[in-house]
Simulated scan of single mutants.
Amino acid sequence: MTRTLWDSTVGKKAIMAVTGLIMLGYLVAHMAGNLKIFFGPGEFDGYAHWLRTMGAPVLHEEWALWIVRVALVAAVVLHGVSAYQLSRRDIRARPAGYVHRRARASYATRTMRWGGVILALFLVWHILDLTTGTVHTGFRPGHPYQNVVDTFSTWYGNVIYITAVLALGLHVRHGFWSAAQTLGVGNATRERVLKTLAGLLALVLTAGFVSVPVAVMTGLVR
């Protein structure tokens, strides 16, 4: 049964839909956590500390955080591999391409593949920048607020982050709608509601994530 699900086109689309929704839930929570930076270093650093101790005293320090990380890595890998394999199947099915080059889908639809690549590269940079500090000059372990301010005090930190967030917005807008279609949206009324919800989610996530570097650039957060 598992083998059939993974091998079939419908199965891969279902896996992409489920893993996409898992990642979307994480993004909403992550954005909400990021916005705590507007309440000052005490609030933001306290939230970062809570992430490492959540689940205590049942779980040891960082156990719950690592469970979340492993689940997210699994979702990202399954999502990416499924997307790549579906893309290859699509290319093999239409090797000659279309005779007429008329746009067949929205801008977000046509940039989903490149958007996924941009987000994957950004994820690596983001971890090396604010989690391990590998590419972050002056990184201070245990001081997440200051590390975030330092990152967004550089032009390249802002360019990388904002570019990735814009790609994320397009990805979420189309991805949420695609997931709803794959899992079954029902009648036309539900389709309209879900399309509207997809747009709102993309807008809220984009605005929420971008607000942090903008706040640092304008001196609202420092």
Rank of each mutant, 00 (worst) to 15 (best):
I118Y: 11
G116V: 07
R69N: 06
R104E: 08
S82L: 05
A71H: 04
W50V: 08
Q85E: 13
L86S: 05
L51P: 02
V99P: 06
S106G: 15
A83M: 12
I118H: 02
G80N: 07
M112I: 09
Y84M: 13
G97Q: 04
A48N: 07
V73N: 01
H79A: 02
A56F: 08
V81T: 06
L72T: 02
R88W: 08
W63D: 07
V81L: 15
H49W: 07
L86N: 12
L59M: 15
V58F: 15
W114H: 08
H49F: 11
V68T: 05
V117K: 05
A56C: 00
A64N: 01
A74W: 04
M54V: 09
R69A: 10
L72C: 01
R94G: 00
R110T: 10
G116F: 08
A56D: 07
H79I: 02
V76I: 15
A48C: 04
S106I: 09
R113C: 00
V70S: 00
H49N: 10
R52P: 00
A103E: 14
M54D: 03
R69M: 05
G80C: 08
R89E: 15
V58S: 05
W114C: 00
L65A: 12
G115F: 03
M54L: 08
G115K: 07
R113K: 13
V81R: 09
A105F: 09
R89W: 07
V58H: 06
L72G: 01
G97V: 09
H49E: 12
V117C: 05
T109A: 15
R102N: 08
G116M: 07
V117P: 00
R92E: 11
I118E: 05
A64F: 12
V58Y: 13
V77H: 06
R113L: 14
T111K: 01
H100F: 13
R101T: 11
R101M: 14
